[in-house]
Design a protein around this nucleic acid. Structure first.
Lengths: 155, 155
DNA sequence: TCTCATCAGTATACTAGTAAACTTAAATTC
DNA sequence: GAATTTAAGTTTACTAGTATACTGATGAGA
């Protein structure tokens, strides 16, 4: 692989980024595969978890928790409603979302299994390393949110 | 937030996972926003970079590098071809992909800018911390690939 | 050499999201 | 209290990927 526009000082950071992307994609694929036995995708699972934690909850609030648009939530809930996992109840102007009996039972069964799996990804790290890793991630996250608020031209 | 199915030992690992997802999504959004000035998405950019590095290259090889399906590559290249950034040349059974003059010029301009940005995400870490972070990521990645090859029943 | 398997790439139907226009109800303001 | 603004949610058109069936060419075996 030739040096096509990569400067040396960037090299390590770019390797980190590529690796991080792979870890993310890999874990997501594994989770999707695992959840298939419950007829759920990762996104459906995440949505149900947010409803479990916050119910009764408006669609706008769900959108904020999941960082997707209200349109996306509307689509998603349409599918979950058709499978009778959630209910929408109009109260004044807002629709409040709750889990149905069926949805509650399902998510309470799946959540601990999926949590254990998600957590097991980090098994190769010691507890001490996990703390270090987490703190670094927090720094990176905070920094990326700052960038978010700055204009970024071609300098 | 009540304790809904989360065990205590998992807590830190789950926090890591949630944070990692946010960092990934956040950085992706920022990159997409940045690349918009060149009429590129992150995925188009990544594709062009792979072609730059490996050209001439078959569509199957591109699919492997990007970890998407050959169908996805076919769609993607259709779009890039329409914008005259790449060329497909049939040689025997295989189509070999190369950048056009226009594509080459564009990606050589954008790559260093985008690399600098991508790398700047990790600015809050010292060089020493970056090495530590990278090594942990490698461990996690290798572990997740092992999981990949094991059958995963309900625990 | 004919047939059959294989493999690169394409086409089609589907999933899941976004953006933006639209609907409807509530809140505000005159 | 009528008119306007605001906000929640829906709808539609669009983007980008997957899975799967298909096309067409290569290469191998009888």
């Amino acid at each position: 692989m030739r040096n096509n526009g990569f400067t040396e000082e960037n090299q390590l950071s770019l390797l980190i980024w590529l690796r991080l992307v792979r870890v993310y994609e890999n874990s997501n694929d594994l989770s999707n595969e695992f959840l298939k036995q419950f007829d759920l995708s990762v996104n459906q699972f995440d949505t149900l978890v947010q409803i479990l934690i916050h119910q009764p909850v408006s669609q706008m609030e769900i959108a904020e928790h999941l960082t997707i648009t209200k349109g996306g939530v509307s689509h998603m809930l349409g599918r979950l409603e058709k499978e009778e996992l959630i209910e929408r109840k109009q109260d004044w102007k807002v629709k409040y979302i709750t889990l149905t009996e069926k949805g509650q039972t399902l998510i309470e069964k799946v959540l601990p299994l999926q949590s254990d799996f998600q957590a097991s990804l980090f098994d190769p790290l010691t507890d001490e390393e996990k703390k270090v890793f987490y703190n670094m991630l927090k720094k990176i996250h905070r920094h990326s949110q700052d960038v978010n608020r700055l204009p970024r031209g071609v300098q």
